[in-house]
Design a protein around this nucleic acid. Sequence first.
DNA 1: GAGCATTTGTCCGTATGTATT
DNA 2: CAATACATACGGACAAATGCT
Lengths: 239, 239
Amino acid sequence: MNIMGQPVVSDLVDALAATIRRMHPGDRLPSEHQIMTRHGVTRATARAAVQELEDLFLVRRVQGTGTFVNRRIDYPISQAQAPSFHRTVEAAGATARTVLIGRGTAAVAPDLARQLEIPECTETLRLERLGYIDGLPACFFQEWFNPRAVPDLDVALRVFESVAEVFEAGGFHPVRTSSRGTVDIAPPTVCARLELPRNRQTWLVESTNTDRTTGMPLMLSRAWTRLDQVRMIFKTVAG
Amino acid sequence: MNIMGQPVVSDLVDALAATIRRMHPGDRLPSEHQIMTRHGVTRATARAAVQELEDLFLVRRVQGTGTFVNRRIDYPISQAQAPSFHRTVEAAGATARTVLIGRGTAAVAPDLARQLEIPECTETLRLERLGYIDGLPACFFQEWFNPRAVPDLDVALRVFESVAEVFEAGGFHPVRTSSRGTVDIAPPTVCARLELPRNRQTWLVESTNTDRTTGMPLMLSRAWTRLDQVRMIFKTVAG
DNA sequence: GAGCATTTGTCCGTATGTATT
DNA sequence: CAATACATACGGACAAATGCT
């Protein structure tokens, strides 16, 4: 404890947070050893402070390299918002990239169908994709496509950057008609994909996308997203 | 590290989590000293494991008393769901109680009005309430009431348990017409109310409630909710 | 009210391992 | 290979809150 009766770590966190506010995303923080000597605390205390900064999503730590100022983007989820990872990320001023890591045909996951209160489609095209923000893995997608909407999705994904573009090229206008968003512990396989330790909380968003005019179902999706890179904002509007 | 190269703390967490699954909310965990001697680790390691369980919302710690199995309820937020703290909490099988901690007349907070894209009402009745789940502070409400809808709210709140009942007694049927939900760091004053340390993440939900039939605006609200007691689920539905 | 044991909260100091540069 | 930086763990000490005698 310090003179004011406040924990030493809290003071350290406040001091470091103040300097972080004057820095920019990607900038490097002083090492734990430097913090230790400069502030006259032990390594354990310096570490606890940096740990708290990481819990607040202010910094990102890389073993063997250092600690860096983190960037976190706002990610609105609503029916008004076009359901596009690329566009939402780039609207926030960051760079987006997605990589296809798995494909096949499969029925919609039964629990997802139940959550969204839709009938289970018998046969769909199923994709697994990984979304990167500023080059870092941020979002793991499981998607089920209506084959009538996009018969040649494999080919289309080599031509277009994002799924939204594929739909639009086919004359569709996807809108997020229903969704379910929360925070939950990611399964081990998802943690591995997102390069997270086991048992980490993530955003979990499940949604159905349909065509704006015809109402045709285009895609079901389930996405786990890292809390430290994205702050989701769930909006519903009157009408 | 253990033989498998996995951190000792992770093993401890898994072991403790397994026993917790066989226990019930409110049950007491072994003390850190007992964990320490039983598993042959130091206090720091035992503490780190319990800390991780707390981060996963599995346990709750009380200084001088002990560590206890935590209960966390699901809290759906949607337009279909009636916007009532009491009913939502009790539908999840827990007990709800609210306490009035402040009242006055004031204009709607300008940032809230902007977030919800509504005009700022000139004069409203403003309340601050604290919601308890199973006797523990869980939710801090700031609410702005339409004085035309509930002219004698002060009196009504002494008669009825929940705000929803007050509206219904006046012949209104409140529905959550628009809302904005996310996770954010609670301001210091809110942390104090919720008995949280400073700079803790909480659910933040802002919404407008209007009458189902007439569309008359009844109430604006902003609520901060503890993550460890509640898992919010934000739903939007087609239509 | 005073005193004591228990339990969690905070901090110190040291040592070693692992990943990156 | 060496230096740097973060990750993990050990052991000890005292403070603060609680509950009981």
